[in-house]
């Protein structure tokens, strides 16, 4: 089994998956707390648009995707500000437009079906050295942001008005969360594909939210679940001879269902105890 790691792309892919697995779910916690799920949909579609542009123009999809997502986030913020409207509405418009343009490009430039599929599924073994550096850099940025702004994050997640009146720069926190999410979604596409990005970002955070009773624990558990899914998904994929992304997705979904069911049962038990009292 361990002879696998004698192949450099495999070892590199595993390490990148591990790093991303532990750190990317932290942005998932932020997205859930700030109710930014439409934003991450937009970024997923933006990542597809970036991939489509790169394939059509025959350039590197990884860096193009990052650039496109950052531009989309900037465009979204500017539009929301000038129209004085909610970012959620703007993100839905950008999401639909991104998909339309992506499919048009794929069709117009006769992009091969297998290349399109690679965008949808991703591959951990296709990560090169510079891309690994980008993963590590983004992971460190997420950790640094989390630990430096921990108290401010807690204030903003509790209530933005109260955070503001306490002197917290809530706009900076919000914009940094959006920026980090844009980066995370863009690079996660390389690992796990556009369709399964939620598996490394949202699902671990969602599971942690179900069973943790403090912000600290939610973040810790989201990170642990993400890391565990990455490691176990990697080995399960090897044994079952399926793509790593789908192995991770199936594992995470099973864990989510078990935790969700357990929470339902325990809350029902709690209710019946109350009735008996």
């Amino acid at each position: 089994m361990l002879e696998l790691f004698s192949y450099e792309p495999v070892l590199r892919g595993f390490l990148v998956l591990l790093v991303a697995g532990f750190t990317f779910p932290i942005t998932g916690v932020y997205l859930l707390r700030l109710n930014l799920l439409p934003l991450r949909f937009m970024l997923m579609h933006g990542a597809l648009l970036g991939g489509a542009i790169a394939l059509a123009a025959n350039i590197n999809p990884f860096w193009t995707t990052i650039l496109v997502n950052l531009l989309l986030v900037w465009f979204m913020a500017q539009t929301a500000r000038s129209l004085k409207t909610d970012m959620g509405y703007v993100s839905i418009f950008i999401m639909v437009a991104s998909m339309g343009v992506a499919f048009a490009l794929i069709s117009l430039f006769n992009v091969q079906a297998k290349d399109t599929m690679s965008l949808l599924w991703g591959s951990i073994f296709a990560v090169d050295n510079w891309q690994s550096v980008a993963f590590i850099f983004i992971s460190l940025a997420i950790l640094a942001f989390h630990f430096i702004f921990y108290r401010q994050l807690k204030a903003v997640f509790f209530d933005t008005t109260i955070a503001y009146s306490s002197g917290v720069n809530e706009k900076l926190i919000y914009n940094t969360v959006v920026f980090l999410t844009a980066l995370t979604v863009a690079v996660a596409m390389k690992l796990i594909g556009a369709l399964l990005i939620d598996v490394v970002i949202i699902l671990p955070a969602l599971i942690a939210t179900l069973h943790s009773r403090s912000f600290k624990r939610v973040v810790l558990w989201a990170s642990l679940w993400g890391g565990m899914f990455s490691v176990s998904g990697f080995f399960a994929a090897y044994w079952l001879k399926v793509p790593t992304s789908s192995a991770i997705a199936i594992l995470a979904t099973l864990v989510f269902l078990v935790v969700y069911w357990q929470k339902k049962v325990s809350s029902k038990r709690g209710l019946s105890n109350v009735k008996r009292l």
């Binding site: 707390r33 108290r151 401010q152 807690k154 204030a155 997640f157 509790f158 209530d159 109260i162 955070a163 306490s166 002197g167 917290v168 720069n169 943790s212 009773r213 403090s214 912000f215 624990r217 939610v218």
Partner: peptide, 19 residues
């Protein structure tokens, strides 16, 4: 504050110093 953000009473008080 109607959301369900997991937070204790003392953590809410600490928010006063978050800035």
């Amino acid at each position: 504050v109607k959301n369900n953000f997991p937070i204790s009473a003392s953590e809410v008080v600490e928010i006063g110093l978050a800035g």
